Amino acid sequence: MRIALIILGAVAVAFALDRLTALLIRRISRGRYRWILEPIHRDCRRPAIAVAILTVLYLAVPTWLGLPERKARHIIVILLIAGVAWLITKFLHVGEGVTFSRLPSTTVTDRRIRRARTQLRPVRRLTSVVVTIGAIGLILVTFPRIRAFGISVLGSAGVIGALIGLSARSVLANAFAGLQVAFSDSLHIGDVLVIDDEWGRVEEVKLTQVVIRLWDERMLILPSSYFTDRPFQNWTRNEARVVGRVEIELDHTADLDDLRVEARRLIESSPLWDRDRWVLQMVDVNAQAVKIEVQASAADGASAWDLRCDLRESLIRYVRDQHPQWLPRTRSEYKP
């Protein structure tokens, strides 16, 4: 009965502190700090109550469920360490969410916002991993036998540490590569990349991998070390605007001035063109045909892709219907 009363008292004290904290936050958050205090109280409420209850139990319970005082306090200390780790991890999640909520949602058009989103998430995940590992280490330290065994092994030869390092080499390499990708400013969330002739947009930058949504809605998942070891194309590193390119082959008799007029009409009538730049040029020639390239800018990668497809289809239709003699032909000479 005494232990039950102490536990009920601890729960009552914890909930009283929670209500008092809610009242203070409600009074303080009427000003400019409401956007950060209310999410912290709402999301960190449960782990904070658990930590408060365990703290009161640690201070008030000499014995617990018939166990000696030393063992009872040891169990409470283990639970308290886990509760504090839970509270810190939850606080990190709240900090990330609050920071993202303060950023504008137009991540495609603002490079600084995309860079902030790219850098915050890997840091939060790495910090959560460090907190979790630290909590496990503190729990193991509370056991004298395990602590003595670990110190003796590490101090004698360090073989286990070397084996762990070798086995986790790829994981650690990807983790450090993820931090390098996040802070090297080589890519951001929302950037348009071309990797092995695959076009896609960066969907998520994790600690050990990068998720890319391809043009056909497939998800390409690559390790973070890929972007530190291999080259890739980033179309939107400095700005979101993308220049689309369309190449077609025509016969040598094709009138480029006529084709240029039609290309200009198609581009200017397209809502996907950002009214910035366009050009039609002959970029190559061979014995059978000439290669024509049309370049037109769009606001982002998705618009540039659709603009390229529309231009390619419309130009081929124009040549086929209006000037079929411009289509590539193979010539031969007959000598009787």
Rank of each mutant, 00 (worst) to 15 (best):
F227P: 02
P104D: 05
P47S: 04
Y226R: 13
A168P: 13
Y226I: 09
V13I: 05
L65F: 01
R42Q: 02
A162F: 15
S224G: 07
P62E: 01
R125E: 15
F100M: 12
K71E: 10
D43Y: 07
F176K: 08
A299W: 14
G83N: 08
A240N: 09
S314V: 10
L327Y: 01
P324F: 01
V181I: 11
A82L: 15
L79N: 06
G244W: 07
V153Y: 14
G178W: 00
L214V: 09
S224L: 04
R277T: 10
L220I: 02
I75K: 01
R241L: 10
A14L: 02
R237W: 08
S167E: 15
T21W: 01
C44M: 01
Q322F: 10
S186F: 12
S184G: 15
L20D: 01
E268V: 07
R26G: 08
A116D: 09
R26D: 08
H93M: 13
I78S: 08
I212R: 03
Y33S: 08
R218Y: 04
R45A: 10
F91E: 00
H41A: 13
R34T: 13
R320S: 06
S186D: 09
K71M: 07
L65H: 02
W235A: 08
A177G: 01
A254S: 02
V261Q: 05
A168R: 15
R331M: 14
L59M: 03
I267C: 01
D276V: 11
W35P: 04
V181K: 01
R145G: 09
E262W: 06
L67G: 05
L57H: 03
A72M: 05
R320V: 13
P271N: 07
W278C: 05
Q119H: 02
R169G: 13
R169V: 14
S184A: 12
F183P: 05
I139G: 11
I6R: 03
L23M: 10
L193C: 03
L24C: 03
K291C: 07
A304M: 07
H41G: 11
E198F: 06
R329I: 02
K335V: 15
Y318T: 00
W86Q: 09
A116E: 11
V202L: 04
R125D: 15
L220F: 04
L87P: 01
I75D: 02
A304E: 10
L220K: 05
A157Y: 11
R111D: 07
V205A: 06
D274A: 07
G165N: 14
I76A: 03
G95W: 01
F100G: 02
I133P: 09
L214P: 06
L163K: 06
A135Y: 01
A175L: 15
V205S: 09
R218W: 00
F15Q: 02
E203K: 14
L187W: 01
L220E: 03
G161D: 13
I136S: 13
H74G: 05
V159L: 11
E249T: 09
G150A: 10
R111A: 07
R275M: 11
Q288D: 12
R213Q: 08
